[in-house]
Design a protein around this nucleic acid. Sequence first.
DNA 1: CATTGTGAAGCGTTTCACAGCC
DNA 2: GGCTGTGAAACGCTTCACAATG
Lengths: 231, 231
Amino acid sequence: MPVERPRRRIPEATVARLPVYLRILIEQANEEVESISSDGLAELAGVNAAKVRKDLSYLGSYGTRGVGYEVAFLVYQIRRELGLTHDWPVVIVGAGNLGQALAGYGGFGQRGFPVAGVVDIDPSKVGSVIAGVRVRHIDDLDQIVQTRHVNIGVVATPPSAAQDAADRLTRAGVTSILNFAPVVLAVPNGISVRKVDLAVELQILSYYEQRRMGVGLQAIGSSDSGRGASA
Amino acid sequence: MPVERPRRRIPEATVARLPVYLRILIEQANEEVESISSDGLAELAGVNAAKVRKDLSYLGSYGTRGVGYEVAFLVYQIRRELGLTHDWPVVIVGAGNLGQALAGYGGFGQRGFPVAGVVDIDPSKVGSVIAGVRVRHIDDLDQIVQTRHVNIGVVATPPSAAQDAADRLTRAGVTSILNFAPVVLAVPNGISVRKVDLAVELQILSYYEQRRMGVGLQAIGSSDSGRGASA
DNA sequence: CATTGTGAAGCGTTTCACAGCC
DNA sequence: GGCTGTGAAACGCTTCACAATG
């Protein structure tokens, strides 16, 4: 009767881990594993068991004390919580190197994010076909978003074009953006943005590399064990 | 006597933001901006000013009260802190869709991470040239890592091959890994791993999309919104 | 007197430890 | 007995607020 949706608010850190649990649980299900303990899942996810239990407790009390969690049921619950009970078509802005790779990367469609379209502002790119998707002009964005009911946009343009891409996406009605361009996007209130910056990731690794070396040299004098950033 | 490396330990969260500040500061320097306040930098970075000041304070007291920070000097200090005073050549494992896009993505080289090599296990891929880099067989990994002094490896293989790629990289002497495959890598102690999982990012966005809708729908039907009693 | 640098308070996340339950 | 679920402690990060200062 009542719409089945009384969910508690889930901490951001937990939301970020649920997809990882989900992938592992699906793998386990494929290997006919029926039940898993917080310890087992923790091991596979590279985190600690208390964290797994806390995280899962936000979904509800779906485990069985003394036994563990039923894999199939957990998969269902996490899917539901993450809104993965249906597909979310995405539109990719930018048909350069990265845009093409993303469109061609099968993982998106398989995991519930089919590519509804790829658009570019450069007429010379329009018309080419990437992984079965024809590149269209960015002026067609509104139409793609509307007819394909797209909520999520991917910005894969050069930095200089990224803000314009974001503007067009939000104007077209997209409410979530995954941004691969190394710029800070300004978006209207209420729009979700997540950023993936490859150079930033490498620079973070560089910090720990450099530190490792520094520590190595220093180790002549002190025996302080520098905590790594490993899984 | 202590080598010149008395660095404080910098919080992880700060390390992750320094590259963003750095990019912005370099842009400012290119536009002949000589000085910037914590407020100004905060605005451009999309964070708040107190955070900027705290972050920068870990590098030392490099600002001038009543004035701000000298852009060029800050660029230098952040570079030094992140270990970006020299290049870090990287090797990419996997010459598929993503590996090719990464190799072709100019941003890496420009930002101090030239591609020292791309390797693949599939002989049919070996020999092709991507963005000026010839794809080599994965058996050549050790040689590339040694002759080019590579510390950072990028895993861009299918999930099933990722652990093997990581094993080979660490055996070859790489100490940092950027992992694009949707698997949790097991690595020896002391090896840094950072993970970029595109599907995870989309799934996180999906959660907030779904939540947006859930709230909307609920507002129509029932006023019994399950306000989280502290379970 | 504008702006930095920073103790201290506030807040969200992780971890502990154990009661509750199968 | 074994494992979950969860208060409470511990921790780290963010934000506040203001003294320090060029």
